[in-house]
Design a protein around this nucleic acid. Structure first.
Length: 215
DNA sequence: CATGGGATTGACT
DNA sequence: GTCAATCCCATGC
């Protein structure tokens, strides 16, 4: 898949919906930057009403983008090292965004390998810091428009229709009870820890031992 | 102005 | 499993 079979860029209205709906709907969409692109297989939702969200503290220089209009990129530095990519959601004035946590690479794989220094396709974008490195996404894209900027989100060209599973968010210490992580079921491109796989029985269910009484 | 804490990753035991 | 790298910025004095 080297040629651009991408659908149209996603318009801002898509991102104005409740952030958990946007997070779920983004699984299967495409992120493109330069020659590189990938299908989103894992997201997380963040909202200013819960303390794991940067916007929980209110409007500050750091959270300015989060409170901005839907459809912007919110890119911030994590642990001093990694750039993490989010899509701003909900109407302007509400601090909410969807963290992009993993992609299935579909274009520019050689450029990704070069930037990551790795060969395995499954390892190129299987984490929020990994995918920004693979796509060459940096802090300079914070506040850019995902419909018209250098970094774009696209609808899937063919509807993937992959089932999406929800799980607890990764790497946070607050509001851990919320199941606001969304993963493409069974994808080998999601980050660790993997969500609980839909477990099919390894063997037939053990026979239920029920004392049988006569009568 | 000093401090501390991360929406992580890769190397190592 | 443990741990350090490294920077932005919120908070507190």
């Amino acid at each position: 898949m080297s040629r651009r079979g991408l659908g149209p860029p996603i318009e801002a209205g898509f991102f104005a919906a409740p952030v958990t709906e946007v997070a779920r709907a983004l699984v299967g969409c495409v992120v493109a930057h330069g020659e590189t692109a990938g299908v989103i297989v894992e997201t997380e939702a963040y909202h200013d009403s819960e303390p794991a969200c940067h916007a929980y503290v209110g409007l500050t220089p750091r959270t300015r983008t989060l409170f901005g209009p839907p459809g912007l990129a919110y890119v911030y530095r994590s642990y001093g090292i990694h750039a993490l990519l989010n899509a701003v959601a909900e109407p302007e004035g509400i601090g909410a965004a969807v963290l992009i946590r993993a992609l299935e690479p579909i274009s520019g794989v050689e450029a990704m390998r070069r930037r990551r220094g790795l060969a395995r396709v499954e390892a190129l974008c299987s984490g929020p810091g990994k995918l920004t490195q693979a796509l060459g996404v940096g802090l300079e894209l914070n506040g850019s428009d995902l419909a018209s900027g250098a970094l774009r989100f696209h609808s899937p060209s063919r509807s993937a229709g992959v089932p999406v599973v929800s799980a607890r968010r990764v790497g946070i210490t607050k509001a851990t009870e919320l199941r606001w992580r969304f993963c493409a079921a069974g994808s080998r491109f999601v980050s660790s820890p993997r969500p609980e796989p839909a477990r099919r029985p390894r063997r037939a269910a053990p026979p239920q031992v029920v004392p049988v009484r006569a009568g």
